[in-house]
Amino acid sequence: MNSGRCFGAGSALLVLIFSILCLTVSALTALSSASGERVLSEKVGSVISDYYSADCRAVETAVALREGIRNGEVPDKIGEIAINVDENGQYSFSVPINEDLALAVRLAEKDRKLMIVSWLQTRTNEWTPNETLKVWTGETVP
């Protein structure tokens, strides 16, 4: 009677290969997820750092513009940043944050002082909507 060997020869190896495979897949998934998280954290840090660098340049530009206005002379350009004046007498300029984003600043003059109208992060590259999916607009009944 062979009651001690209910599993055939090699079953231990098969179980082992399966458990090693499970363990390895699980470990690699954890590593890939952690690596992705690390890359995302670094990207967020880089964007925040770039934003504050641009904010510093915007502050410098606004201060230089204020000094120019006090001296009675509005410059066309401060450093590499072009100053635009619109029909309402508001000054605007844009400081690049990175290749996709810019800090758009709009200032208004009041009693020889500059007031911040807007200080916004905007997108510089064009947004192209995806129109490949046909959606029923309700105009015609199919």
Partner: peptide
């Protein structure tokens, strides 16, 4: 590999 994943996760946190 698990230890490395844990280290990376702790760093990103």
């Amino acid at each position: 590999i698990f230890a490395e994943a844990h280290r990376l996760e702790a760093q990103s946190k």
